[in-house]
Design a protein around this nucleic acid. Structure first.
Lengths: 170, 170
DNA sequence: CGCAATTCAGTTGTGCACAACTCAATTGCT
DNA sequence: AGCAATTGAGTTGTGCACAACTGAATTGCG
């Protein structure tokens, strides 16, 4: 008995909790990575990674934006965006320049090439939808649930020093 | 007019597709990262990251396993697991040794300390469930949907050279 | 005005995900 | 037995996520 693999078959309840735990978080993670795989294939032609594609979506929709705003749309901070944007700039898809009005801020905009890339991305969503095998209504419902979940988790993380403390916060 | 931010307000349909695209994949991604944030807080005490926690869950449940099997449970390959397991070994939580039966295979097992850590992880699931603010039934339903989605995406990725080609594959 | 607090982008360091590869052990086929 | 194909773990290189930090610009308050 070097490391007691099965602690005790009688202790069903706590064991079940640790299995149940895999429920959402793991399924979510797996689904997210499965999407990543499909996007990787589809976006290879465009020379984009999935996070880069998200940035391009934001820019196609909103035009020129400060880095801060891009981050708000995507829930990403400058630690992630700065190098990512630098790569997009190196690829010739985006342009970055310090705002004249506020020298702290950097405006991110599309180059001609970046704007043109939109045309080639137009049928990505349809192909993704096809890969999911789900109809639009189901997708909508799932998305609504996930957004609620994210909101709840963010709230818990903020008021959440209590999270790592006593569970008695009714 | 350096890069035409808003292509044309009249072109509603294609624009909507590119926005709709954000639907699941982005929500999924955001939810996954939101979970990550909550887990990060909860697991800090245990000295584990979330992926490390997943590995420990597998080992707590199944005892000693070859690296391959751990990867199958978690959908991770050796490129991810090898360094992760090395860190868990350095932390004194797991043990790795070449199988005598098959010298290619490496058995991963718990140390005393790793097995003992289970006790301290027992209330992580409850705290996570509390942070989601969802009841168990809702969680179950969501998980089922996500697993179906993952399955569909994996299938698409496999038969999916067609994915990046003509959409006429009925 | 003058200075402390805040804001914004960027850097550094750690860890994960994944593709592409190496290398040894094993299996299967003849 | 002999050898090609496969399998399993590991390494390398790229890119993302995030914490912690730096440094410059701006804001706000007395």
């Amino acid at each position: 008995m070097t490391a007691t693999p099965a602690p005790s078959p009688g202790a069903a309840a706590p064991g079940d909790f640790l299995r149940l735990d895999e429920q959402i978080c793991f399924s979510l993670n797996a689904a997210s990575r499965a999407f990543g795989g499909v996007y990787r294939v589809l976006l290879k032609d465009l020379g984009l990674t999935y996070p880069q594609y998200l940035v391009m979506l934001v820019l196609w929709e909103h035009g020129e934006l400060p880095v801060k705003k891009v981050g708000e749309h995507l829930r990403l901070d400058s630690g992630t965006l700065s190098p990512l944007l630098k790569r997009l700039e190196a690829a010739g898809l985006v342009r970055r320049e310090r705002s004249a009005r506020d020298e702290r801020s950097v405006q991110v905009g599309l180059t001609e090439e970046g704007a043109a890339l939109r045309e080639r991305a137009l049928d990505v969503p349809r192909r993704i939808a096809a890969a999911t095998g789900a109809d639009l209504e189901e997708i909508r419902a799932l998305r609504a649930r996930l957004d609620l979940l994210t909101e709840a988790l963010d709230r818990a993380a903020l008021s959440g020093p209590a999270l790592s403390e006593a569970p008695g916060c009714t």
